[in-house]
Design a protein around this nucleic acid. Sequence first.
RNA 1: CGGGAUGUGGCUCAGUUUGGUAGAGCGCUGCGUUCGGGACGCAGAGAUCGGAGGUUCAAAUCCUCUCAUCCCGACCA
Length: 576
Amino acid sequence: MKLSRYYIPTLKEAPSEAEVVSHKLLIRAGMIRKLTSGIYNYLPLGLRSINKVADIVRREMDRAGALEVLMPSVQPADLWKETGRWDYYGKELLRFNDRHGRDYCLGPTHEEVITDLVRGEVRSYKQLPLNLYQVQTKFRDEIRPRFGLMRGREFIMKDAYSFDRDDAGAEKSYRAMFEAYKKAFARIGLRFKPVQADSGAIGGDFSHEFMVLAETGEDTIASCTACDYAANLEKAKVVASGDVCDAACPELEEVDTPNRHTVEEVCEFLGIAASALIKTLLFVVDGEPVAALVRGDREVNDAKLRNLLGGNEIDMADEATVRDLTGAPVGFAGPHGLRKGVRIVADSELQCATDWVAGGNKADTHVRHLSLSRDCEVEQYVDLRVITETDPCPECGAAIEFTKGIEVGHVFKLGAKYSEKMGATFLDENGKDQVLVMGCYGIGISRIVASAIEQNYDENGCIFPPSIAPFEVCLISLGGKDEAVNEKALELYEAIQDMDVDICYDDRKERPGVKFADADLIGYPMQLVLGGKGLKNGIVEAKDRKTGERIELPLDGFAEAFAKWRESIWQAWGLK
RNA sequence: CGGGAUGUGGCUCAGUUUGGUAGAGCGCUGCGUUCGGGACGCAGAGAUCGGAGGUUCAAAUCCUCUCAUCCCGACCA
């Protein structure tokens, strides 16, 4: 591609609305432009990168035996009503009506559509397993879109859905996808990590997120410094020491804590550490009141609580409910003396000690010398809290560290959640109806381009892995009016194209500085520079964008020298 | 949805406090000089100051309403 005929509107300054590096650079490099909040145009360069990512993903999906389809982005409400998600999904689902007033939505995901498609076609176990995928534009009406392509409302996603006859088959499909994802992300050239994620009601180790490691990531990963355990914060298990304290505890007594609502205020007032206090959080889980107890310096993990109680919806109790349950304003809830019928669950850690301070369920009052076993009716002690960096690895006991990541992929075993509700069944060998066992697997294609930049950039711009760069190589001619140089550059350009390498040739009538700056900004991993001096000395300069290292390639025998250099660049990226 | 902020040429921003009829840098067009890391000179084009209404002799500036965008929070397969 000759850049004199290309469209690359680069900018020296980024629009003020761009916050994160990938957003700024994608705009400055002329790869995207915003149309409206969370919705972007992909310009030629940006689209090239996206297509490269999608192609790699496609190839790995195909290798894993998945078949590409394309489903509509507009979906009828009827399907969503079948699974109950029309009501459950909330405002993130963009709904609208057609001219007849019928309800439709823009697809944020395609479980309903694919299940509908399959239930109409798959009749026999002989047709299984089946894995269908698509690369498609999704729409989720995010409350707060931000960070450019990182969290847009409209985005490009690869989503795959597997159908198996039983759990064993579904597990196999799951593993195949897991492996395909690892290969795809490795081929793209990302530093990533699969981490365990919360799988909700399905349970087991059947949900993994693939995280690109980057400081600007929105998610926190708890990973082991010794073994390969890694999980997101929702999922990360906290292992209890198992100690049960049976030390004697003095009589329970009330203490006045006027106007002290928060853990911090109470601890300061009573002169105790937060770890000596029990924090009592009231939730409403599927309409039922529950008190969750953790140490004052810990956080309750909502996902763990929801999974424990098998609930769907979990909310913090509102002020009126708190008054009703405790007989006190917010800030004085405790496990002792709650209204009857409130279930009490406690974090395992609370068994390791006694003689606690807790809320008194009375205005401006706390209690001390509280013994959970003596004074309260705790239903069970379980892992309820969010892991911290001082907790040990649940697998091997070594130290845990927190890192930031960007979620770019998710594999999830769905089980019969959709197939059952939508009646997607097949006949087994015995002629009996069986429900299909499903899995779903997503990759955020457009988000990957952003995360690749988050992971690789410097003060001059993007640094793309060669696998997904808009162009692998940029050839810059510094010939100006020197036709001998331009002719030679054109010759090199043709030669490289003959090698089937993805190259662009900057033949624009620009000063050298402009071409260099644009090339660095866009982040082609390889730059070739041919100038008058070089031509005279029989060399072309080759620059590695990542390291900044420059070497000279001979014009005589250029093809071989270039091929070798190119290979070394790919290798340095850990690719090919 | 709560809190905060901002809308002035394609981009970054000044001007708003104290009303007097719109400015800079970058970018863009033409000509010339330059040409190995975002050149320089000269000449240009380009803005109903987010929108509507109001106050005033006069509004980018003051008032009311409205729309949009961004940030923080809550929410979230």
